[in-house]
């Protein structure tokens, strides 16, 4: 049996809102360690990988592995019914047909209970080995979101160039071009404002901005985003959770 209680419903709300436009049907695999999701978008360009570690929950028990096949659009509708600050408990039997969501308002005795029918989802799994990346950058997630949104007004593609002392984001379009250059900086008082670059090799990679527009929906999950890039291989965009992560793997674009 699964019983996982979130101190605040807002965390799961944010997670679902962050991935529901990238993937619709996915298996939430629950184990004693927490809940994991891996799913690929229909175009097979973007992969979502989620771990909600058991330490995120104020109470958590899962005696044996349970898979919850969830339609995220329906899940999102139900989860919006609860308040952000409510306790949220997920409950499922060992071989469940449905998952129950219990919202408890902390300021009153109101308890709301919803159940979502589950689906049999036959999704394949992509094996992702640990890789040595050419470059790892860490920067404020909100800045990355703004840069991508600004440059998406000009182009469908975002070019990222990384050298040891700068990160350059570029977009070239029919109406004009744009670029934003960032330099590494350490902010001792506000570490979440820091920008770091670890470089093994200089990077020059290009990505579709429509996919990046989906990735940056994870911005509210973490102050910082970690971007790991190698030339000509998928990049990893990561928002760290208190225990766990939301990762997106995005295949690059190539020159014709």
């Amino acid at each position: 049996m699964l019983e996982g209680k979130f101190e605040e419903a807002s965390l799961l709300k944010k997670v679902v809102e962050s991935i529901k436009d990238s993937v619709q049907l996915c298996n939430f695999v629950c184990s004693e360690h927490g809940i994991t999701v891996q799913a690929v978008d229909d175009s097979r360009v973007l992969l979502v990988s989620l771990l909600i570690g058991n330490e995120v929950f104020s109470d958590y028990r899962c005696d044996r592995n349970i898979t919850l096949g969830v339609d995220l659009k329906s899940f999102a509708k139900i989860i919006r019914c609860g308040g952000n600050d409510d306790y949220l408990t997920l409950i499922a039997e060992d071989s469940p047909d449905s998952v129950t969501l219990v919202f408890e308002d902390k300021n009153s005795d109101r308890i709301s209970e919803y159940s979502l029918k589950l689906m049999e989802i036959d999704n394949e799994f992509l094996k992702i080995d640990d890789m040595d990346y050419d470059s790892v950058i860490k920067m404020p997630s909100i800045d990355f979101q703004k840069i991508c949104r600004d440059l998406s007004t000009l182009s469908e593609s975002l070019q990222i160039l990384i050298t040891k002392d700068s990160i350059k984001f570029m977009a070239e379009g029919e109406t004009g071009n744009g670029s934003v250059i960032l330099k590494p900086r350490t902010d001792i008082d506000k570490p979440e404002q820091s920008i770091t670059v670890k470089l093994n090799n200089a990077v020059n990679s290009t990505f579709g901005l429509k996919y990046i527009a989906d990735i940056v929906k994870g911005t509210s999950l973490s102050n910082q985003i970690v971007i790991k890039i190698s030339n000509r291989t998928p990049a990893l965009f990561e928002y760290k959770l208190q225990s766990g992560y939301l990762r997106f793997y995005l295949a690059p674009k190539f020159e014709d």
């Binding site: 175009s43 360009v45 973007l46 291989t233 295949a251 690059p252 674009k253 020159e255």
Partner: peptide
């Protein structure tokens, strides 16, 4: 502006 790559090219399906 380039050809969009696919994840299947890089990751093994299991």
């Amino acid at each position: 502006t380039g050809v969009q790559g696919r994840l299947d090219t890089f990751f093994k399906v299991i």
